[in-house]
Simulated assay, not measured.
Amino acid sequence: MSTLRRWIPNQHGAWAMLAVPYLAGVLIGSPSWLQLPLFLAWLLGYCAVFHAEQWVRLRRASRNPRAARHRRPALLFTTATLALGLPLLCAAPWLALAAAAMAPFLAVNVLYARRNRERALANGLVAVVPACGMLLVALRAGGGTLAEGLAPALACLLYFAGTVPYVKTMIRERNLEAYRRGSVAYHAVALVAAALLDPWLAVPFALYLARAAVLPGRGLGVPLVGAVEVGCSLLLLGFLAGGYG
């Protein structure tokens, strides 16, 4: 179990961001055999990137000896991703365009890791973009079109971008009033934008605004904060599947 914990990334909030947009794309479109290995390659790729970034970060930080423990997982997850991804590229060459579109965001994340600033607000926001873009990839894998996926992908982007400052107000920046005000302001704007995409989306986004305004400063523990975000993510998935599926 201890080995598993070392290999599986401990960024718990990232798993919802990886899964929900992808699953929304599957549910909005038509299920396809391609979507399952593609999802597995997506998760393996995330694990590879996580360990590679940790290796880069710790190597940069005074040649930290802990960097070595990330080398093997990074290599093995990268190998597994390529082993699964290359046949997928042969079956669906358009996936190369999706990978190319994500590459600049990955480069920015690696740069922040190298500077040991991976928890910077901007870095978190950059990471959200390709994750939400996977809704379009999953939808296309099921025969859908960009036009069909644009609105739900933007809804995912509005929600998950908001989780970046919100979670900071609950944990690392919980004593900074400026962060709380900024988070609430963002969620108010996101509510309006989501309602313009689809009036029904005003329902979950009103709840997201309420939790951003009310929960900071309440002393909630990390597990409860995480549980609330899982519920919020599933709520979004339900509205997207029901409204666009």
Rank of each mutant, 00 (worst) to 15 (best):
V26K: 03
V108S: 02
L135Q: 09
S62T: 13
Y186I: 01
P9M: 12
P73I: 12
A190D: 07
A151T: 09
R117D: 07
A100M: 14
K168W: 01
F205K: 00
L136N: 08
K168C: 04
Y186G: 07
F50T: 07
L240T: 08
H12C: 00
A83W: 12
A99Y: 01
P152S: 14
A67V: 11
S183N: 09
W15A: 08
L34Y: 07
P73A: 08
R60T: 13
V225K: 05
V129F: 09
V192E: 09
A131D: 05
V56L: 14
F77T: 08
G149P: 05
R181W: 05
L234F: 10
A120C: 10
W200H: 05
N123T: 03
G85E: 03
P9H: 05
M134F: 15
L176G: 01
P9R: 06
A122Q: 07
Y22N: 06
I28E: 02
V126G: 02
T145R: 00
W94N: 02
T169Y: 13
V214K: 04
A210F: 11
W42Y: 11
Y112K: 02
W15F: 10
L197C: 02
F205D: 00
G45R: 14
G243K: 06
G182Q: 03
C156V: 09
R63F: 14
L224D: 05
R140W: 15
Y159C: 06
P199Q: 02
R218W: 05
A48Q: 10
L82H: 02
Y186N: 04
G221W: 02
N175S: 13
A67W: 13
A127L: 06
P73Q: 11
N175Q: 12
W7H: 04
L191P: 00
E229M: 11
L146I: 06
L224H: 09
H51C: 06
V26G: 01
L201D: 04
P65A: 15
A213F: 10
P216K: 14
A206Q: 03
Q54F: 14
L196G: 03
Q35P: 11
E177M: 07
A141K: 05
S233Y: 14
L58D: 10
